[in-house]
Design a binder for these strands. Structure first.
Lengths: 163, 163
DNA sequence: TCCGGTTGGTTCACACGTCAACCAATCGCT
DNA sequence: AGCGATTGGTTGACGTGTGAACCAACCGGA
């Protein structure tokens, strides 16, 4: 079973650069969010989706689909956010099993303060330093990978039917 | 404080693609490693570095520098790996404070089985679907981001002096 | 109507990462 | 030699992510 050929130099370079970028980017952005806004990256994602929803309300399963999160992860995280009064959970009127997650005033304030900061951070570290060509290539690569993952994944990992 | 301009369409596309790629890639690779080799991504990184070191031995602080890991993370993780008999920890002969972490036979066997698999996975989902130009662009972007992070980070997060 | 399968959600146990506090050995300076 | 700062490393508390088990409500036939 030695049929797998190693990465050539060009591939290695790209791979290492991607890995370092990946780690560095999320570490940097998370840290900025945490220290300047008191939010984790996960908090931010949740709040951002809620803020875009009508009345700041969503069914958890909708939220999970948007975030591509496993349901247990979402449940745990919402529990913690509820304690911090960033969101509330109410029973759902039309489905006795379910719940509705709603943004609190506090959550709304925080996400609206955090969003422009976050975009600024993304600019600072990435967007403002890439050419249009590089941006397009990045998007293309991302789409390629997504397609490969979708083709291979076929039901492994949380599925998301694009809305 | 509304001076931060939002991302334009091209930037949004690139950003979303990058985020999805980032999440999808690490989730996919970690899952493959876990299910086919019984190793987490973190285990893999540690073992890979040890396997490249002379005699499969490294001082933890060296390992931490290579991995860009915080020392507490490394300490905790080595503890778990030691329990699973992937590595051992011995006192260091030349520095009474320190330790030496060494690959066990079991660890050696696992990493040597995992490495080609892992490379195959990386090929399958990424490398075999990108053009040389795309690879170069990816490397360039990664380097750009690393430079930005280094310029901004200035001592935030684990520093690593390139070896 | 009943009954099995699916869906929405929670909970438990565990692996993982970070921060702050801590300890002992070593280094550097006088 | 003495002593404070630095270095190498561990620990504890806590937030976070995953998989499996579980439960209740819903759905779709026979």
């Amino acid at each position: 079973m030695d049929e797998a050929r190693w990465l050539d130099e060009r591939e290695q370079r790209a791979w290492r650069a991607l890995m370092v970028m990946q780690d560095g980017l999320s570490e940097f952005l998370d840290r900025r969010l945490r220290t300047r806004c008191g939010l984790s990256g996960a908090d931010y994602e949740v709040l951002a989706h809620l803020a875009e929803a009508p009345e700041g309300r969503l069914r958890p399963f909708e939220l999970g689909r948007l975030l591509r999160w496993e349901k247990s992860r979402l449940s745990q995280h919402l529990g913690r956010m509820e304690k911090r009064e960033l969101v509330t959970r109410e029973p759902c009127a039309t489905d006795q099993r379910g719940a509705v997650v709603a943004l609190t005033d506090r959550g709304r304030v925080l996400i609206e303060a955090a969003a422009p900061q976050h975009v600024g951070d993304v600019r600072e570290v990435l967007m403002d330093h890439l050419s249009p060509d590089e941006l397009d290539t990045l998007a293309t690569i991302g789409d390629t990978v997504r397609a490969r993952l979708a083709a291979l994944g076929q039901g492994s990992g949380p599925a998301a039917s694009e809305g």
